[in-house]
Design a protein around this nucleic acid. Structure first.
Lengths: 239, 239
DNA sequence: CGCACTATGAGCGTTAGCGTACAGAACTTT
DNA sequence: AAAGTTCTGTACGCTAACGCTCATAGTGCG
């Protein structure tokens, strides 16, 4: 078991070769990520990339009228700031902390440099990006076709997978913002899940009681995304 | 004006350096893409990548129950088969021809080879991939928040941009499949647009009469995606 | 020319989720 | 302990889109 403050709690960092990691480690800086903290604003320049260890960050799109929706989630399996090595410098998304914790950050320029000189890092990050692509695609499909109940299950499972614990700290209001639905809708859906004995809900405190039950109730989207992460990044093994 | 069968009608091919293009051109093969043709099936191995010239290809996700939804569109500004250079080999999407025409295809292995040896090609394709990412993210948001009317406008504009003509050949049934909605819904929405004088619709034959009007009626998603393509790939200039 | 087929249009009742409003419950602060 | 704040639950009318069914109108073919 790694100490909680070890950078290697991030699976991408853990998958690096000794060489690559050696180039990063002197400049890796541990930062706390409080709930709601905005890592990047849509269109802003990226100074750092972030490797979450025990936190979860959502990529949100915020519309002109203020309504929002999550397009992807990143936890200790990933990195925030892919636009840097993809070459676009910015993204039209906001990155906001959905579950408080910590991350290690790295100057963007350093990442870019190593990315351009290391085939290994390149392959790793590109495969990660492809997994992220799948997640976004699946989010699109899910938003189109599946019920709020199903989406809530998917979302809880994605969050659960990215933390080590069955306890999630998040209000229904927050979840509603992520899913882009009404808070009352979440209340109702969560109520059903609680009645079914799958979760326990108490004032910003969710406990997953029956993981398998949630999976059964979720739409196929969750499984598709998880399979794809496992396929593309076997060295990380989210489970 | 280029001849219609020139590979350079594809903007990505046109943006290559002379060197890179010279490596590709002997193996570029022109193929007709009839309406409905499936280029890739979800999860299948990719033998070739395709560069559309006068065709449009949709990336669809097809669910277990047969329902479907488009996650992105690719026309002469892009390439189909990004999983090859991203390292994943396959994608959980189906690629299907949405507007008949032609494409040039290239053996996947060759593309991979050149990709790994040419920084220029790498940067170009990665920036394209980032634009695609934005398109997927925006599709997700749009599916969540916008009305069928707005989405239809967005979709018509995206298609219009990828052809040279104001005439689109597609049935309402087809559009419904792409958007993941009922055919009757499309009938109704298209009826409204026709009444407003923005398009003319006649049995699989759409004519865009008032582009600006469509833009005004579309949600912000269209503009966001278009801006991002233009920003990331200025050398292509879709307009 | 007439027949068959395919695309479109129109009319139901149904439903998931929205917007709004308000009440109770659980923490926090003083 | 009281007051204030933040979460959660409940209710009610409303609307977009659904699923289904059937009618009409082009189009192509024998």
């Amino acid at each position: 078991m790694l100490p909680l403050d070890d950078p290697l709690n991030n699976h991408l960092l853990a998958a690096l070769s000794a060489d690559e990691y050696a180039r990063f480690s002197p400049q890796l800086e541990r930062v706390p990520l409080p709930l709601g903290h905005v890592l990047y604003e849509s269109g802003h320049e990226l100074r750092h990339v972030y490797f979450p260890t025990d936190s979860i960050v959502s990529l949100l799109y915020v519309m002109l009228d203020g309504a929002s929706a999550e397009v992807a989630v990143v936890g200790n399996e990933g990195i925030i700031g892919i636009a840097l090595f993809m070459g676009g410098e910015t993204m039209p998304n906001r990155a906001v902390v959905q579950s408080a914790g910590h991350a290690y950050r790295l100057p963007g320029q350093l990442l870019k440099q190593v990315f351009n000189n290391s085939i290994g890092l390149q392959h790793l990050l590109l495969r990660y990006t492809q997994a992220l692509l799948t997640q976004m695609a699946q989010t699109a499909v899910c938003n189109r076709h599946h019920s709020l109940d199903q989406q809530l299950c998917r979302w809880l499972l994605l969050s659960r997978d990215r933390l080590s614990s069955d306890e999630l700290l998040m209000t229904q209001e927050l979840i509603a913002n992520m899913l882009g639905v009404r808070r009352e809708g979440v209340t109702e859906a969560a109520g059903k899940l609680q009645e079914a004995g799958l979760i326990r809900y108490q004032r910003g405190h969710i406990t997953v009681l029956d993981r398998a039950g949630l999976e059964a109730r979720a739409c196929e989207c969750y499984a598709v995304v998880k399979l794809e992460y496992d396929r593309l990044l076997p060295e990380l093994s989210t489970a």
